[in-house]
Amino acid sequence: MQPFPSETELSHLIGETLEQVRFDPHSCQLLFERAKILAVLALEQVDTDGRVWRYENIAAEAGPSMLHRLLGLKVRDLESAGLQLTLKFENGAQLRLFSDLEPYEAGTIDGAGKFIVF
């Protein structure tokens, strides 16, 4: 739908702890203490050893999930670069979320009184 907003606009995610991951047929929900991210497009999890796990959010074709490795970890930093948002966790792992320029939303970020559509 559109690029991610700036790091400043997303700074409320820094310090948040990932508490729950929910898989829906065509999306993934990331629930933090005071924020929620709904991702419709693919996600990429980068482990501390550099291994990349990609999730396409297509239930009938879903592969294994390693997102449980991020549960209980705090977001220490983030990087917003156009159509990619990278959440950097306290153990060095990263989670990449993607947007696109198609007419439908690729996800939402809800928290700190903000509702952001990407």
Rank of each mutant, 00 (worst) to 15 (best):
L43Q: 04
A39C: 11
H68L: 11
A62T: 04
V52Q: 07
R69P: 00
Q45D: 07
Y55T: 05
A59C: 10
M66R: 15
R54I: 13
R69N: 08
D49E: 10
L43E: 01
L71A: 02
S65N: 05
A59I: 10
G63L: 06
R34G: 07
E33P: 04
L78A: 02
L78S: 03
K74P: 00
V75C: 02
R76C: 06
L43A: 02
L31N: 07
R34C: 08
Q45W: 15
K74D: 02
A42N: 07
G72I: 08
V46Y: 03
H68F: 13
Q45I: 06
P64Y: 12
L31D: 09
Y55D: 05
L31H: 08
P25K: 12
I58N: 08
H26F: 12
E61H: 10
E44W: 04
V46G: 00
A42T: 08
E44Q: 14
G50L: 07
A60S: 14
L30H: 02
V46P: 00
A59L: 13
G63S: 04
R34I: 04
R51K: 14
V52N: 04
R76Y: 06
L41W: 07
V40Y: 06
A59S: 12
D77I: 08
P64W: 11
K36S: 12
Q45E: 14
S27E: 15
A60N: 14
C28N: 06
K36V: 11
L67E: 01
A39D: 09
S65F: 03
L30R: 00
H26E: 13
A35R: 05
V40P: 03
G63F: 03
I58G: 01
A62D: 08
L71D: 01
I58T: 11
L38A: 02
L73Q: 08
W53Q: 06
G72T: 10
W53G: 01
G63V: 05
D47Y: 06
H68Y: 14
R54L: 11
E61F: 12
E33V: 14
L73N: 01
R69V: 08
A62I: 03
L67C: 01
V40S: 03
I58Y: 07
V40F: 09
M66K: 15
R54K: 13
R69G: 03
V46A: 01
G72C: 07
A59D: 14
S65P: 00
L41D: 10
A42M: 09
R34H: 15
L30C: 04
